[in-house]
Nucleic acid binder design. Structure first.
Length: 516
DNA sequence: CGCTTTTGACCAGCGC
DNA sequence: GCGCTGGTCAAAAGCG
């Protein structure tokens, strides 16, 4: 790196132009040029006249240049500020501005170097974060798998007990009810819908259209508990029915109670939003509004209208303490495909409901540890400080508090990319990258893969990939970590479905694109 | 015209 | 049994 042979320190520093006083204006111009030529000059130009003379002599030498490079920048500054003699004061007026510029340039150089170091440090931290994230995710998945195994063991045990009880008491009328599963439609659900709900719904509609009588509606509600069992319906009534039909067996009672609990499971989402409702991607129709006690804000009741007979409903109410907080409570299971945007919330509620399921079924037997909390931390890692499970509520409700978590989550995002919650305005914005939802989604597939199969499943997985893609696009800083995590997540279900690990992502991505 | 929202009424559960 | 509260329904109104 050659130094421009002009030094700014004093009037005699130019070897080719020996006129000291006349050259000052030119020198000033040269100074500017000099600055733009090289930054290394700064520390060398800011020296006294004598040193500048020496510099001029040595400027032809590269070695000297290297030596100069080793001289501290501060030294030049100090010299310049210290040696403001009377002679130099004559040129001070012309040089002071230059010196200020030099100083700022030097500071810029320093800042750039610091920035460079900081960026390198950040890069290193990112790599560490990515690695830690991957390790954490793999551990998460392993833990979920272990929990699932335990759950299956418990389910098998209870099923055997139930069958024995049925044989003993000869209660053939007791039909096992399907657990409520918030979120995505599944092959099993759809088949059940075809066999139970679908045949039931049209007559209901016909009857409703022919004669809208209260008694008849009530009769329908009584006669088709399965129709309502997927949604809110009248859960208490259903549970009572179950209990009354199972009074002969305590274990069966527990089982039915657990199932009823599942049907009543709710997922409440607290998010800051000025909108009236959360835009969760689904189409909702408001069917009622009530003034709840203790809250001046009315509670609105919505029903999913994306498909006829979809039992999913939600309640929307503003927090009494803080009006900016919107409390949305979901319950039910969609019986139709969901748009990618709706997958966010659906997968969240699915994961939360699965959490409740695990907690309700396992905690009743395994009292030592609290799998609910464990699952809350495992399945909804973002919610370690946000997800709370209310046992005192009439319905088991898991609350995902996304209001206070915004800052916390942002602080915690550095711990796990899957915890990342780029929450700008809560769930109200659809383009939010709901990575916890993605996590829930992935876990949903992880949990359902043993039960369900088929094209629809892979399509849903594809949608999750599109969601993941959007999330990655929205968060380029963690793209690498997210990609790794998503690869590990999505490869799981597709390993079974497609039998091709490598093509798993591509396949689902393609299907996702086709759907879109 | 079809869909959505509003709103009053009805019903069930629960506590006293 | 009565009243309160939550949840739901459906006619009417509003809207695009």
């Amino acid at each position: 790196m050659y130094r421009f042979p002009v030094s700014l320190g004093g009037p005699h520093d130019n070897p080719k132009q020996s006129q000291p006083s006349d050259e000052q204006p030119h020198r000033a111009v040269m100074d500017e040029v000099d600055f733009f030529r090289s930054e290394k000059r700064d520390d060398q130009n800011i020296i006294t006249d004598e040193t500048n003379r020496v510099h001029v002599k040595r400027e032809n030498s590269r070695v000297v240049d290297d030596d100069d490079r080793s001289t501290g920048i501060n030294t030049g500054l100090n010299l310049l500020t210290a040696h403001t003699g009377s002679d130099e004061s004559m040129v001070d007026d012309g040089l002071s501005v230059d010196m200020e510029e030099k100083r700022s340039k030097i500071e810029n150089v320093q800042l750039r170097e610091e920035l460079k170091k900081a960026s390198e440090e950040i890069q290193r931290l990112k790599e560490m974060l990515s690695q830690t994230t991957n390790n954490f995710n793999s551990l998460q998945m392993q833990l979920v798998a272990v929990m699932r195994q335990q759950e299956e063991h418990h389910h098998l045990a209870t099923t055997e007990r139930k069958e024995k009880a049925n044989k003993r008491h000869e209660a053939p009328e007791m039909v096992p009810r399907q657990f409520i599963e918030l979120g995505l439609p599944t092959a099993e659900v759809s088949s059940e819908e075809r066999t139970t709900v679908r045949p039931g719904s049209p007559p209901s509609l016909l009857e409703n259209s022919s004669s809208r009588q209260r008694g008849k509606r009530l009769l329908e509600r009584e006669e088709s508990p399965d129709t309502e069992s997927n949604g809110w319906g009248n859960p208490n009534k259903v549970s009572r029915h179950n209990v009354s039909s199972n009074t002969c067996n305590g274990n069966a009672i527990d089982q039915s109670a657990a199932e009823a609990t599942m049907r009543k499971a709710r997922v409440s989402v607290r998010a800051r939003s000025e909108a009236t409702t959360l835009s969760d991607g689904c189409h909702w129709r408001k069917y009622g509004q009530k003034m709840a006690k203790g809250n001046p804000c009315p509670r609105a009741y919505f029903r999913c209208t994306m498909a006829v007979g979809c039992p999913v409903r939600k309640q929307v109410q503003r927090c009494a303490e803080e009006r900016s907080i919107l409390i949305t409570t979901y319950e039910g299971n969609h019986n139709h495909p969901l748009p990618p945007a709706a997958m966010y919330m659906a997968s969240t509620t699915t994961a939360a409901a699965s959490m409740l399921l695990s907690g309700s079924t396992m905690s009743s037997q395994d009292g030592l540890m609290n799998p609910t909390n464990l699952f809350a931390r495992t399945m909804l890692p973002c919610s370690s400080n946000m997800a709370t499970i209310s046992a005192s509520a009439p319905f088991p409700t898991i609350t995902l508090d996304l209001t206070e978590s915004a800052s916390n989550a942002n602080n915690q995002t550095s711990n796990n990319s899957l915890m990342q919650f780029p929450q700008r305005s809560g769930f109200a914005e659809l383009n939010q990258s709901g990575l916890p939802q993605m996590m829930g989604q992935a876990l949903y597939y992880s949990q359902q893969q043993s039960k369900f199969s088929g094209l629809s499943q892979s399509l849903n997985a594809g949608e999750s990939v599109s969601v993941a893609t959007a999330a990655i696009a929205a968060n380029p800083n963690f793209a690498a970590a997210l990609a790794a995590a998503l690869t590990s997540i999505i490869n799981g279900p597709n390993n079974h479905q497609n039998g091709d690990n490598n093509n798993g992502i591509n396949n689902v991505t393609t299907s996702s694109v086709e759907r879109q």
